[in-house]
Computed example of a mutant assay.
Amino acid sequence: MHTLFSTILAAILLLSANVTLAASAISVLGKDYLFPNRIAGLPAKLSDFKDLQINTFKTSDGVKLAYWEAGRGRPLIFIPGWSSNGAEYINVIYLLSKQYHVYVLDLRNQGLSQRVEYGNRIARYAMDVKELATHLGLATADYCGWSMGASIMWSYMDLFGTNGIRKFVGIDEPVSIYSHADWPERERLDAGGMTTSPERMIAAFTKGTPANSLIVDMKVMERFTVMDSPYYQNSIGFAGTFIQNDPHYLSLVLFDHVMNDWRDVIRQKINVPTAIFTGEYSNNVPSQRWMQSVIPGAILFVYSKAEQGDHFLVFKNPVKFATDLGSFLEQ
């Protein structure tokens, strides 16, 4: 009997070691937060969003990654862009969690995830996404990649195929950030090329080093600073209170990110229902139209300037985005 009891206890302990206990966001962050703008239909303070959790798991190469989650229903996984995090998705999570089980992964070296000097390649980030799905026990899910998050999902499909992806959404990411010197202008536009010097782009994005538009397209950074949306003010303020980015760690993935050209993957490997989002303020519109032309059945949403149609449309106009995304997912 003693031996049987010991065996059962050991099994229970082993099982519990692999289960992440749910943790409320407010307990993880340590305090409440009052959003600067009171907006009907959204929380006035963090504690109003009682369903929001922040949990963690460890990757196969030993990195502790955080993910934000709320809601019930079909799983919907968001992969943020470079330097972004789950806190910035607070409005989107709240709106979509009424219908879906929403997850937002904090990539390594971003958000609340661990800072490490290794594994800073888009392919490894794609593996992290796959390992998140395994950790959550998800055989299939809808995936939404914004900015660099779209590149991570292209890498995921290149490496693992689309068997675990029900539907895919990509938001305003160039097909190839690096613009080759021998490309004609049409090819540059279709690829979305926005720099001829990865090193200069990295310095501009991480250190604020000046760069002219012939070397680096700075439209993204210009639109980042335009704070004319109360939704955006709330999410940026919330993220800024709890997330401390380190430019050094953020820079580690950028060279690999800039130098990838995803045209072969987009042409040949995306065989699931796909939606693409962009906006009139973005210089990426031609590349997003190219993607729509080569992905069978792809749907393109182009937000107007009045609809906050720039690289940050998800956060500047979350109500419209959540509505459009939901409509696509339910088709």
Rank of each mutant, 00 (worst) to 15 (best):
H2V: 07
L15Y: 08
L15N: 01
S16L: 11
V19H: 12
T20F: 13
A22D: 10
A22Y: 02
A22N: 09
S27I: 12
K31N: 10
L34I: 15
P36K: 15
N37T: 13
I39C: 01
A40E: 12
P43I: 03
A44P: 02
A44Y: 07
L46F: 05
K50F: 11
N55M: 11
N55E: 15
T56I: 00
K58M: 14
K58A: 14
K58G: 11
G62Y: 02
V63M: 07
V63S: 04
W68N: 06
A70E: 00
R72Q: 14
G73S: 05
L76C: 03
I79F: 10
G81Q: 01
S83C: 06
E88Q: 14
Y89H: 03
I93Q: 02
I93Y: 01
K98Q: 14
Q99R: 10
V102E: 00
G111E: 01
G111Y: 05
G111V: 02
G111F: 06
E117Q: 13
E117I: 14
Y118L: 02
Y118N: 10
G119Q: 08
R121Y: 14
I122P: 14
A123D: 15
M127N: 13
E131V: 04
L136W: 03
T140A: 13
A141Q: 06
A141D: 01
D142T: 05
Y143C: 03
G145E: 00
S155G: 10
Y156P: 06
F160D: 04
T162H: 08
N163C: 04
V169G: 13
S179H: 09
S179G: 15
D182L: 11
D182I: 07
P184M: 10
P184W: 09
E185Y: 04
R186V: 14
D190F: 04
A191K: 14
M194C: 15
M194Q: 14
T196A: 10
M201Y: 07
A204V: 01
A211W: 08
I215G: 07
I215H: 13
D217V: 04
D217A: 11
D217F: 09
M218E: 10
M218H: 09
K219G: 08
M221G: 10
S229A: 07
S229G: 00
G240I: 01
G240A: 07
P247Q: 06
Y249F: 15
S251F: 03
L252C: 00
H257W: 15
R263W: 12
D264K: 11
V265H: 02
V265M: 09
I270F: 05
N271Q: 10
P273Q: 07
A275D: 12
I276R: 01
I276S: 02
F277H: 11
G279K: 06
G279S: 09
Y281R: 13
S282W: 07
S282G: 08
N283T: 12
S287T: 14
S293L: 05
I295S: 03
I295P: 11
P296E: 13
I299D: 06
L300F: 11
F301E: 11
S304L: 05
K305E: 13
K305I: 00
G309I: 12
F315I: 09
K316G: 08
K316S: 01
N317Q: 03
V319Y: 00
T323M: 12
D324F: 03
G326F: 03
L329Y: 09
Q331R: 12
